[in-house]
Each structure stands twice: as C-alpha cells, then as structure tokens.
Design a protein around this nucleic acid. Structure first.
Lengths: 133, 133
DNA sequence: CATGACCCTCTAGTAACTACATCCTCTACG
DNA sequence: CGTAGAGGATGTAGTTACTAGAGGGTCATG
C-alpha cells in the first residue's frame, strides 16, 4: 500500500487532522478508504487535493470558492475562463479590502495623533470615538 | 419623557434592533428601563454609548477591545495611556493586515498573469494552486 | 502485556452578528 | 370601537472556518 494515515497527511500539508476531517465532513475532500481498524487510508490523490485546498485558502479564497475552483479544475477539457473569473473576482475583493484598511489606518493615525497623554476627561481618542461620523 | 424606542435608537445609529439587543445581552450596553408594555425605553446616555460602540466597531476594534475602551473611558480622572496603547495596538494589527493582503495581492496577480485562457488542462492558475508553496 | 502515541466519533465553542418563528403592544383609520 | 399593520419582545438557530475536548478504540514498541 502507498496509503497513509491522517497524521501523515496532516504533517505533509501543515493541516490539523481535525481540519482534514472537517473538509471531509463538508464534502470538500473525498472519503478515503478505511483500514481494518477503521483508520482513514489516504492516497496521493488526496494529498494533491488537500494541497490545492490549502494553497487556495492561504491565498484567501473562501471554502465556497475553493469548491468552485475544484469543480472546474476537474473538468480538464473545459476552458479556464471561469477559473480566471473567480481568481480575478477574488483579487478585486482583496484590493477592496486593502483600500478599506488603508482608510481605517489613516483614521486611526489621525485619532492617535491627537492624543496628548493627559487624563481621560480630555482624551481626544475618547472624544473622537464618541462622535458620530 | 425624553426616552425612545429601540427602533428610534436603531435609526439614529444605523444599527439593527437585533444588534442592539445583542449588545445588551453580552453586557456592552446597559439595560434600559421598560415601559408598561415591556418596551425598552432608551435615554440619551444609551445613545451616546451606542454611538461610541458603533464608531469603534467601524474602526475595526473587536467587541472585547470596545469593552476595554468603554471601561477606561468611564474612569475620567485616569490617564489615557491605556486607551492610547489599545488604539496603537489596533493600528499595528491593521497595518499588519494590510501587509498580508498586499502579499496576497501580488501572488494573485502573478498567478492570474500567467493564465492564457486555454483549457483547464494547461491552466497555470490550477497548476499554481496545486503546487505547495 | 502494558504504555503511549495515534486514531475514531460527536459535541460544543469561537466572533459578531443576522434571521426566523411566535407572540405581544401600540397607533391610526373607518 | 374594532381591527389592521407597524413595530417590539423572546428565544433559537444559522453564518465562516475551523479548533478543542470528551470518551473511547487501535497500533507499535519494549
């Protein structure tokens, strides 16, 4: 057998065993065969699949998106437009998030810059937070 | 009475009534008096508190942090060092997150840039996602 | 044969809400 | 005055992507 336990798969992909079982439960990772002792017996195909999932997650794709990517990636003759679309949409969301956070950053910097380390009574941070908009 | 219903408070702060009840449940917003008909009767002090909470949330502070900010902000004689510390820590986290997302952004751009709109079989995005690291 | 490392299942917890379902209260109109 | 509809009350469950723990079974090693 070239099959391996969940612990080996976990180590090979830097994923916790519980997470792997979770992926299986939600139908993201195929059910592996079981040994006589009821241990999951994974094959190289599972490893490849899990790598794909983890790499996608590391790039910030949601599990739903990963599911879509996997669905398309299995259809090897089909054009990769859809894959490209999903990736670009994700990229756009990442860029929007960056813009959001930058706005936040400058608001925080402004707020903090006004604090002169006095007492709470005249702390500009508190005042700013209490002000609407 | 200058008290108002949850609906008015919700409208004044652009918060859903359910969210306000949630804040009450977790002890972030003081329990208001009740009318004869068991409706919550809010006072201006509740409005000020909720504004503070919402503004802090809009700036990305976690509810736990908001709780801490509120605790310090009530102690008006105390120095605002702690407030400053919390705000700076949050700012740092925001900046770290921005850096993370920028790394993600460029990885996604690289990946997408390699796609030449062929079939899945030779789609670079799929290949990249399947590669560890 | 016993110990410890590993595996199994199932349940519940995390953050910060949001959405129901079901019931109650209040206001306004005819 | 009766009723319709808006709005409020409570309680439970769902969301995302795991993670932790309880209570047990299996396997390899000395």
């Amino acid at each position: 057998m070239d099959s391996f336990t969940i612990g080996k798969l976990a180590a090979a992909t830097e994923t916790k065993a519980e997470t792997i079982r979770y992926y299986e439960r939600i139908g993201l990772l195929a059910l592996p065969e079981r040994t006589e002792g009821n241990y999951r017996a994974y094959l190289p195909s599972h490893l490849a699949r899990l790598r794909f999932i983890r790499r996608s997650r590391a790039l910030g794709f949601s599990l739903d998106r990963v599911r879509a990517l996997l669905r398309f990636s299995d259809d090897r003759a089909c054009s990769c437009d859809e894959i490209d679309r999903i990736a670009n949409q994700h990229l756009k969301e990442v860029e929007d998030k960056i813009a959001d956070l930058k706005r936040l950053q400058s608001e925080l910097q402004d707020m903090i810059g006004q604090c002169h380390r006095g007492t709470i009574a005249d702390c500009r941070i508190i005042v700013t937070l209490g002000t609407s908009r």
